[in-house]
Nucleic acid binder design. Structure first.
Lengths: 197, 197
DNA sequence: TGCTAATATCATCGCGTGATGAATTCTCTG
DNA sequence: CAGAGAATTCATCACGCGATGATATTAGCA
């Protein structure tokens, strides 16, 4: 390959992030090498280091979300509060099912299993950016606890459907999942909680 | 170190499995090296290969469960069917909270994120050995679907409490979790499901 | 036009990896 | 008490890793 800068506009950085998203979402954090990302992006390995200080910096960049959480939450809150759970499940599942829809989120989940930084990102993102705001708007009391409870069901669904691939879930219709699992979320977000012990 | 077989009875194999369980539960699959396991077990790396054909064979051996599923399930089914969900959550959380209680299961979850073999083990174990049998006993229809639904909530709880460490969950009292999350499991296992689409 | 900064390649370092094979010492059976 | 087989160590292989630094080419601004 010729050395030196290519002529014309440049998309290399984007290509690297793109390849990294796919790789992290597919294989987690440790199993992915910078070299394999560079290969997938059609790029020299050293370029990855040129654009991103380290592997973990690239990981953080790749986890940037493809959907604006603000818009997402606002749209959900605009509808009927009694069906918030169902609509959240439906929206998430459809998002995950898009080929490029939520690669970042899946990578985040995978990464969180073995990487404390990713675990922190997942924790903060799920409970603060999404569920925390929904819980605050939906019920006055204990928004953090409600968000955490709903988070367990959502993470479990994501793992079961998109990562582990438990058959009845992986193939289930999104609408069916919404009517089946939605009420669980609804309960966690809005119904009275047992008193703490 | 002197070469050759040590005098006296031998516990090396167990030491290796033990160290592997801890390591896999703590860090997942890829991030764990055979050498680090050998180091933790106070053993020569080549010994690991002597006892286990490969890293993945060791992983499989390490995932062998510390609790007999048969006994576990039977005990749960002996109680009141209406509180099955609560009792299951309570039993699982208390099991996970024991220092050595469920290292294997946590490793399995972590490993499942990046390792297809582990994902298969998790899938089959959770849905067949535990939840499948509970669902069959608790409700006549769609045991597989019910087991999968309950599985999402349980995996999500395990991830949230023991891996990602979402604060309100990680510190919550087991009994409180049982009364809060138990009804979700109960619903998935026993209440009428929406018709498939 | 000329200079700087951004983009790109290449060569290489040091390290840890999983795996293998030979050598050594012990245990156990007959 | 001999010999087979199990348990253990050591030396080593080939490889892929993340990272670094030198060098070449182009873009964009003065």
């Amino acid at each position: 390959m010729p050395r030196g800068r290519r002529t014309g506009p440049t998309r290399t950085r984007e290509a690297i992030v793109d390849a990294a998203q796919t790789a992290f979402a597919t294989s987690g954090y440790d199993a992915v090498s910078l070299r394999s990302i560079a290969r997938a992006a059609g790029v020299d390995p050293a370029l990855v280091h040129h654009f991103f200080e380290s592997k973990s910096a690239l990981f953080a960049a790749a986890m940037a979300l493809p959907v604006d959480p603000e818009t997402f939450v606002t749209a959900l809150l605009a509808g009927d509060r009694d069906t918030l759970g169902e609509r959240l499940v439906l929206a998430l599942v459809e998002l995950w099912d898009q080929p490029d829809g939520f690669r970042g989120f899946l990578g985040l989940i995978r990464g969180a299993m073995s990487h404390e930084g990713a675990a922190r990102m997942l924790r903060e993102f799920v409970t603060r950016e999404i569920l925390g705001r929904l819980a605050e708007a939906a019920a006055p009391d204990h928004p953090h606890t409600r968000a955490a409870l709903a988070g367990t069901q959502i993470i479990g669904l994501a793992v079961g459907r998109k990562i582990v691939g438990i058959a009845p879930l992986a193939e289930a219709d999104p609408a069916w999942l919404a009517t089946t699992i939605g009420p669980t979320i609804q309960r966690y977000l809005t119904e009275p909680l047992p008193p703490a012990v």
